[in-house]
Computed example of a mutant assay.
Amino acid sequence: MAATMEATVTWRDGLVFDGQSGTGHAVVMDGDKAVAASPMELVLMAAGGCSSVDVVSILQKARQQVAGVQCHVKGERADAIPAVFTTIYLHFLVRGTDLAEHHVERAVALSADKYCSVAKMLESSVQITHSFAIETE
């Protein structure tokens, strides 16, 4: 049986909405970006978050001494409405001790090509690229 997820979005005022996941977690969204991230910004954060979960998990399984992972995500949007993302670029900064470059490269590639559900969902309409850098502690 397929897994089911649910969420509820409730209008607060203006263009501000409260989102609540089926697991009880909340997020605020703002179409004007005055008090919270916009839904499109959340899409970028979701891509970066999903990929980061994969990268950390893969590196830990490879017994790499990871101390931190930061993913900078940049999205380019179409000029016309709907202003969908046309490209998304993810750059990972991986910090740790004695990190093997081939393990980091493999983790980023596996996330992008196989594991990241958000990236896989978007890739049919968005060109997604990635890179990484390693910072030794």
Rank of each mutant, 00 (worst) to 15 (best):
M1D: 04
M1Y: 02
A2P: 15
A2H: 07
T4W: 05
T4D: 05
T4P: 00
E6D: 08
E6K: 13
E6G: 12
E6R: 13
E6Q: 12
A7H: 09
A7G: 14
V9E: 09
R12N: 10
R12S: 10
D13M: 02
G14Q: 05
G14L: 09
V16S: 15
V16K: 15
F17Y: 14
F17V: 09
D18M: 07
D18L: 10
D18N: 11
G19S: 10
G19T: 08
S21K: 04
G22E: 03
G22M: 04
G24M: 06
H25P: 03
H25I: 11
H25V: 10
A26M: 02
A26Y: 00
A26S: 03
V27K: 00
V27A: 07
V27H: 02
D32I: 09
D32F: 13
A34P: 12
A34F: 13
V35Q: 10
A36C: 08
A36D: 07
A36F: 07
S38M: 10
S38E: 09
P39F: 11
P39E: 05
P39H: 09
M40L: 14
M40F: 09
E41R: 12
E41M: 11
E41T: 10
L42T: 11
V43C: 12
V43E: 02
G48D: 04
G49W: 00
S51F: 02
V53P: 00
V53H: 10
D54W: 01
D54L: 01
V55S: 07
S57R: 00
I58F: 00
L59S: 05
L59K: 02
K61D: 11
Q65Y: 06
G68D: 06
G68F: 03
G68H: 04
H72M: 07
V73P: 01
V73Q: 01
K74M: 12
K74Y: 08
K74T: 13
E76Q: 08
R77S: 03
R77V: 04
D79C: 05
I81K: 10
I81D: 10
P82S: 07
A83S: 13
A83G: 08
F85Y: 15
F85H: 11
I88C: 01
Y89V: 14
Y89T: 15
H91N: 11
L93E: 15
L93G: 11
V94G: 00
R95D: 08
T97V: 09
T97R: 13
D98A: 06
D98Q: 06
L99V: 06
L99S: 02
E101C: 04
E101R: 11
E101D: 08
H102V: 09
H102K: 15
H103L: 05
V104E: 05
V104C: 15
R106F: 10
A107T: 07
L110Q: 04
L110M: 08
D113T: 03
D113G: 05
S117A: 15
V118P: 01
V118Q: 00
A119W: 02
A119C: 03
M121Q: 08
M121A: 12
S125T: 13
V126A: 07
Q127A: 14
T129F: 01
T129N: 03
H130D: 03
E135Q: 12
E135A: 11
E135T: 05
T136F: 07
E137M: 02
